[in-house]
């Protein structure tokens, strides 16, 4: 119950480590934005709802990107929300392009940067063929790694680049400017898939990176597992392996295992209900009508009127009666 480390930290450090101030400051600025409603609502109630929604992970809905990526909890909440909102895409087996996935992301976060989506797509596609189609789960798991471990991957890319060019990677400076990110992420994709860097050396550099980093890193035991299975690897090979690793997905804790990704019992029930309603209705019509329509002359079909599409049928009746009068007219002529 007691973790002494937490209790011995100085106050400000404890608050920073748990991102208490991030949320408190955000709560206050949200309150200021809605101050007209506060008088009838109550300040304590406002704070209660704010922190409850943070706890449930619904606080990131439709918020700006800078807030969504501000804490690991926010990132995990966003991933979970994205998965929940759009798993129907995966269920249908639809394949989408990076651009289309980006549109989905923008539905939840209007200023979501397109670079992040492209980077995630590059993990799936392993090259720059950016208009290729991807399955929902492939994209989601790659996106998860790219989004949640964004800073870690930037530094890892710089380390990889230095290893490739034979520089001493320990002097790597964590890239901060966007130009640095651009350079470090472009270069690895240019190298041919045959070369790459030595896995064990790469691991040692990443291990020390994780020790120093103040950002979230994947558990180093799991990184080791990924890297110990091969001799050499390319950067995108590494990213792909991270994205597909079940343990890393579990450690991150935002999404279920790949097998359970599309399971959604309440939604299924709802669909089942709808389907049974629809099929219950269509049984009465197709059993009567569709067979009849095929066999009987079209003129008799309006008589098997189904009650739930009166408009449609009435139109049909009209056109057919028109047709029949034409016919009769023509026959008369």
């Amino acid at each position: 119950m007691l973790s002494p480390e937490r209790l011995s930290l100085p106050g400000p450090e404890y608050l920073a480590q748990r991102h208490v101030l991030t949320y408190m400051e955000d709560a206050v600025s949200q309150l200021l934005e809605n101050r007209e409603d506060i008088s009838q609502y109550g300040i304590a109630r406002f704070f209660t709802e704010y922190f409850n929604s943070v706890r449930q992970g619904t606080h990131i809905l439709f918020r700006e990107f800078s807030f969504i990526q501000a804490t690991p909890h926010n990132r995990a909440s966003f991933l979970r929300t994205f998965w929940r909102c759009f798993r129907a895409v995966g269920k249908n087996g639809d394949l989408l392009t990076a651009k289309e996935y980006h549109c989905l992301l923008q539905l939840l976060c209007p200023d979501f940067p397109v670079e992040l989506t492209q980077k995630a797509a590059r993990i799936v596609l392993m090259d720059d063929a950016m208009d290729c189609l991807m399955s929902f789960s492939d994209f989601l798991f790659a996106f998860q790694i790219q989004f949640y471990y964004s800073e870690f991957l930037e530094s890892a890319a710089a380390i990889y680049q230095d290893l490739l060019t034979g520089k001493n990677p320990n002097t790597v400076i964590v890239p901060t400017s966007s130009s640095g990110q651009h350079r470090s992420r472009q270069a690895p994709s240019e190298c041919s898939p045959l070369d790459g860097v030595e896995a064990s050396l790469f691991y040692h550099c990443l291990e020390s990176l994780c020790d120093r980093s103040k950002y979230s890193c994947p558990p180093s035991a799991l990184v080791k597992e990924v890297l110990s299975s091969v001799q050499r690897l390319t950067f995108y090979g590494f990213l792909m392996a991270l994205a597909k690793h079940h343990g890393i997905n579990r450690a991150l804790g935002a999404l279920p295992d790949k097998g359970d990704l599309l399971l959604d019992p309440p939604m299924d029930q709802e669909l089942e209900k709808l389907l049974s309603q629809v099929s219950g209705l269509s049984i009465s019509t197709p059993a009567g009508s569709s067979g009849d329509i095929a066999n009987l002359p079209t003129r008799t079909s309006p008589r098997i009127s189904s009650p739930w599409k009166p408009l449609h049928h009435r139109q049909k009746v009209d056109t057919e009666s028109d047709g029949s009068t034409d016919e009769t007219e023509s026959s008369e002529n």
């Binding site: 400000p12 949200q30 709802e49 704010y50 700006e64 807030f67």
Partner: peptide
């Protein structure tokens, strides 16, 4: 939470800037 669903145009406050 209705208040959170409003899109914010203002920049987010700087985080970790000492006590509130």
């Amino acid at each position: 939470m209705a208040t959170c669903e409003k899109r914010r145009s203002a920049p987010a406050p700087a985080t970790g800037s000492g006590l509130v």
